[in-house]
C-alpha cells in the first residue's frame, strides 16, 4: 500500500473494478462504540453514511462522519491517529471484530473503503484489554507498553557519533532477525487480537531486537527480566501459543520471537548476574 494516495488509488480502483469505470459512492451502516470517559458506561451508536468514496481510507471515512457530527452539534468520535502511513502505530480500532480490520499486515489507516461492500454493516470497537483502558470512545491508553519499554532501560553502548561500519561486526542473519523484530510499531493489535489479551508478541519483539545485536548484550539479562516483570504487573494475560497475534500484527512480527523471549527469560533466570 502506498501513501501517494490520489493517482495510485485511482489506478487501483480502475483496474480492480474495470467494469464500473464510474466510481459509485458507498452506503455504510456503522455501529461505533461511544464512551464519554474511562468510568462511563459505553454503548454502540449507529450511524448511517450514504456517500462514502471507495477511495477514502478508513480514517478519512471517520473524518467525514466526524465533520457531519460536529456540523450537527454532536460530539466527534474520538480515535487515535497520527502518520496515516502505517508506520507510527497510533491508529488502533477493532473493525468487525478484528484489530486493524481484516487485511493482513495492514494498519487501520491503510485500509481503504473499496475493500468493503456497498451497504455493509461495520462494527467499530476500541481495542479491548484491561491493560488498555478506554480513555474515550475508540481511544485506549496504551501507556502499559511505554512502561514496559521504560522498564527495559537504556543500553550502555556509546551512542555518540556513527561508528565505523566494520568496527562492530553483526552477522547478516542476526541483523535481519533484529530488523524484523524492530519492525514492531507498538500499536497493541497483538494484545487486542489475543483471546488472553497477552502482550507477549510486543515484549518479545522489543526484547529480541536488542538481544540479537551486539549493542544489546550488556543489559541482555536484566532487560528481559525487568520487561517481563513490568508486563505481568500491567495485567496482561498469558500466552497460550495460538498465534492469533502474529496473524493480526500489521508488521508481521513472528511468534518465533515469543520462543526467543522465553529462551532469553530462562537464560536470564539461570545466569548469576
Amino acid at each position: 500500500m502506498s501513501s501517494s494516495h490520489d493517482t495510485h488509488a485511482a489506478h487501483d480502483a480502475a483496474t480492480s473494478h474495470g467494469a464500473h469505470a464510474e466510481k459509485k459512492s458507498m452506503r455504510l451502516m456503522l455501529h461505533v462504540w461511544r464512551q464519554r470517559d474511562p468510568s462511563a458506561e459505553g454503548k454502540f451508536v449507529t450511524y448511517k453514511l450514504d456517500d462514502v468514496s471507495p477511495d477514502m481510507s478508513f480514517l478519512e471515512m471517520l473524518d467525514v462522519l466526524n465533520e457531519r457530527l460536529i456540523a450537527g452539534g454532536d460530539e466527534a468520535i474520538a480515535f487515535d491517529h497520527d502518520c496515516r502511513e502505517g508506520i507510527c502505530g497510533a491508529c488502533s480500532l477493532t473493525i468487525n471484530g478484528q484489530p486493524h480490520g481484516f487485511e493482513s499486515e495492514t494498519t487501520t489507516c491503510q485500509i481503504h473503503m473499496r475493500r468493503f461492500e456497498d451497504g455493509q454493516t461495520i462494527y467499530i470497537e476500541p481495542f479491548r484489554a484491561n491493560a488498555f483502558p478506554v480513555v474515550k470512545d475508540l481511544v485506549v491508553d496504551r501507556g502499559a507498553f511505554d512502561r514496559i519499554i521504560a522498564a527495559g532501560g537504556f543500553i550502555t553502548a556509546r551512542a555518540g557519533s556513527a561508528p565505523d561500519a566494520n568496527a562492530l561486526p553483526v552477522p547478516q542473519v542476526a541483523a535481519d532477525a533484529a530488523m524484523d523484530a524492530a519492525a514492531c510499531i507498538g500499536c497493541g493489535a497483538c494484545v487486542a487480537a489475543c483471546k488472553n489479551a497477552s502482550a507477549m508478541l510486543f515484549v518479545s519483539a522489543k526484547v529480541s531486537h536488542l538481544a540479537l545485536l551486539p549493542q544489546g548484550q550488556a543489559e541482555r539479562n536484566s532487560r528481559v527480566l525487568a520487561m517481563v516483570e513490568q508486563m505481568d504487573k500491567e495485567g496482561f494475560g498469558n500466552c497460550t501459543n495460538e498465534s492469533e497475534c502474529e496473524a493480526a500484527c500489521p508488521k508481521g512480527i513472528s511468534v518465533s520471537n515469543i520462543a526467543r523471549l522465553n529462551r532469553e527469560y530462562l537464560r536470564a533466570l539461570a545466569s548469576s548476574d
Binding site: 471484530g97 484489554a129 497460550t240 495460538e242 502474529e246
Partner: peptide, 27 residues
C-alpha cells in the same frame, strides 16, 4: 493461567472474529 487470562479482558468484544491462526484444539 485460565483465570488470569479471563481477568485480562473483562469487557469482551461485541463482535469477535479470529484470523484463523488458532485451531480447534488450541481454542
Amino acid at each position: 493461567v485460565t483465570f488470569e487470562n479471563r481477568a485480562a479482558r473483562s469487557q469482551r468484544y461485541a463482535l469477535d472474529r479470529d484470523r484463523g491462526a488458532r485451531s480447534f484444539a488450541s481454542s
